[in-house]
Every structure is written in C-alpha cells, then in structure tokens.
Simulated scan of single mutants.
Amino acid sequence: MKVGIVTSAYDRKREKGGTLQYTRRLVKKLKKKHGDEICLIHPVKSEDSLYEGVEEIIIPAGGKLQFLGIPKLQSAIVEKSIDAMHVLVQNSADLFNFLVLDIPKILTVHDLYLFLDRNPSLDVEFSKLLLQSVKSLVDRFIVPSLSTMKDLRNILNVPETDIRVIPEAPDVSFKPGGNKTRENPYILAHHLHPVGLKAFARLKKGGIPHKLLIFGESYGTEEDAKNMGIREDVEILGYVSKEELIALYNGAEMFIRPIWYEGFGLPPLEAMACGCPVIASNVGSLPEILDDAALLVENEVNQWVEAMTRVIEDDGLRKDLSERSLSQAEKYSWGKTAEKTYQVYREVTEKD
C-alpha cells in the first residue's frame, strides 16, 4: 500500500496554526512506523525535516490555482503507484486535489467553523461551496471529535458510515516543569470570546492582581480592553514559539477558553498536559474532550466570574484540577492518532 498525503498547506504556513501542527505531528509519526507506505504531495522542494527520508511528489501549481496541477498529479499518482490520497486540511486550495480520479480519497475536517461564521468573507464562501461540491468525491472523512462528526452529518449530510473519529493530541513536549518566567500571577487565554474579557474586567475591578495574557490572533481584544479600562492589564502576545507556550502554560494560574464553537480543543488540552487548571465554554467538542477535568461554564459573564474566582481563591480546587488535567491529557497521543489514521488507509485500500 502507498498513500499520498497532501502537505501543501504546511508548506504555505509552516509552524503557525493548529492544523499545521496536525500535519507535522501526524506525518512524523506515520514516517516512523510506515515511512515506506507514504508519499508526501506538495508544491516546492523543501529542506524541512518533515520531508527527510520519505518519497515526494512535487506539483508546482498551488494556492487558488491548485487545479492547474491536477493533470500532472494524476500522472504522478499512476507513476508512483499511489493507492489512496489523504488531504489533511479543508482549505479551498487543497480541496481541488479531489479532482484526481480512480483512487480512494480521505479528507480530515478539523471543524465546520466556516459554515457557522456569522460574517463570512468571500474566501470563506468559496471554501464552503468547494467543500459542498467535492464531498461526494471523498471516501472517508476523518474528524477529531464526535461533536465535529455530528456537525459534518447535520451540515453537509455526510453519512455517519463514512466518518471516522480520530482525536488529535498535545505534543509530548507539553508537560509540567520548567522555571516560571514571570513573577506576577496571570491568566492565560488563546484568542478570546468577549465574555472572557468582560469577566476579567469585573475581576480586576474586584481587586485581583492578575494580568491576562492572550496568545494567537487578538481579534479586536486590544481595543475592547481599552474601552473597558483594563488595557494595561492585558498583554497581547501574538504568535509564540512552542517553547514559550509551554512556559506560559506552566506559569499560568489558569487557562481560560471562552469560545462560541470548538471542533476539538487543542489549546486547553495542551494546557492540561502541563498541569494547568482549565475553564472552558460548555460548547462544541469541549465537554467531550475535556470531560470533568475542566470547569465547563455557559457563555454568561456571571458564570465566568464565579468560575474564575473559585480557581483563584481555592488552592484545593486548583490542585485538584491540575491533577485531573494531567490524567485527562494522558488519554491522547499522536501514536494513537497515527495508528488509527493508518487503519483508515487500510480500510479504503482493501474495501474492494
């Protein structure tokens, strides 16, 4: 068996973003045990370690012009005796690969956020249209949670028999330990639903000494914090390296995940792997993935204030959440993710 894995999106964005980390971690695990059974399909020859010791197909056409490379890809697939193809992200550019004929095809759908976006851009609308158009060409969908499987079934009418739930995982480097890099207490967040900022503002007025640190895209949080009079207490970190992130998780008094939709929930799971107490919105996949190891609350300011106050004031609760977090994170591993993915490859290539 030989499976072509499309890594074009990884080439475009490298380390940034959860779906790109999915590509890197999954491919590295597959290479370790099944390296002679995979071939990576991407647009430009690269010195990146992801491509060391593995067969490649280079298709120069990329981005929105990906479809121009389909004839060349079709020929390469025949030449390399590729038995199946796996597209790792549902980006519009990569969906054109489903125009390849005569082999089983697999698509990982990380979430259906683009169908729930309240203010979709033209690019999002194009991606939605393309995904709806190619869904009938997909033999198996891989999703990271039962919640996303339900979304896929309800929004795109994909039969449950064509969906395989394979959770993702924190990298093994996310673990407790290391020196604290900050003296003052802080609360950590990734992106931020407005309810989280409002709850923090109320807690600041109540006299807590904490800062709020936010990594990733800020989505207007800086202006909102200024309007609430707490700008000096909010640090917008932007993109941080993995090493910086591990240190931030380890030093945080808690990690908060106020959000209106979630397809899996990797940041709170990474926090848990570092033993950091987690509070999260009771939405999407989060109850399923975090279970009783986190405090799950509705997106209502009073509930967030109450939960955050409990974690700040109750040493025993923080210790209990930390211990439960470590146990919960241990349930997930990239070894399991890779092997379950490999079984899907076997399934689609042997089904006839």
Rank of each mutant, 00 (worst) to 15 (best):
L101N: 13
R12D: 15
H190N: 08
D291N: 11
G275A: 10
E125W: 09
I103R: 05
L50Y: 06
P287F: 14
V124G: 12
I208L: 04
K242T: 10
K135L: 11
V344F: 10
A294S: 13
L130D: 07
L156M: 02
I41D: 08
S333E: 00
G206W: 00
G53T: 12
V87C: 15
E253N: 14
Q328R: 14
A273Q: 10
L130P: 04
D83S: 12
P209S: 04
V138L: 02
E232V: 03
M85G: 05
L129Q: 09
H193K: 06
G69A: 03
T337M: 02
V240M: 09
D352L: 13
M85P: 07
D102H: 09
L116M: 07
A247K: 08
N227C: 08
I236C: 12
E15Y: 15
K32P: 14
L245S: 04
E15K: 15
P170A: 09
L107F: 07
H34R: 10
I70R: 13
D11F: 11
R182L: 06
V305Y: 09
P209M: 03
I163R: 11
S46D: 13
I166A: 06
V54P: 04
S133Y: 02
R182S: 04
G216V: 00
W304F: 05
I230C: 05
L114F: 13
N282K: 14
L197E: 00
L212M: 00
V138E: 01
I312N: 02
G196Q: 00
K351C: 04
K211D: 01
S327L: 09
K105M: 06
I106K: 14
I106P: 12
I57R: 03
K45T: 15
K351S: 10
D11N: 13
V278C: 12
L101S: 13
E270Y: 03
M254L: 12
M1D: 02
N302Y: 06
I214R: 12
P170L: 08
G316F: 09
S8C: 07
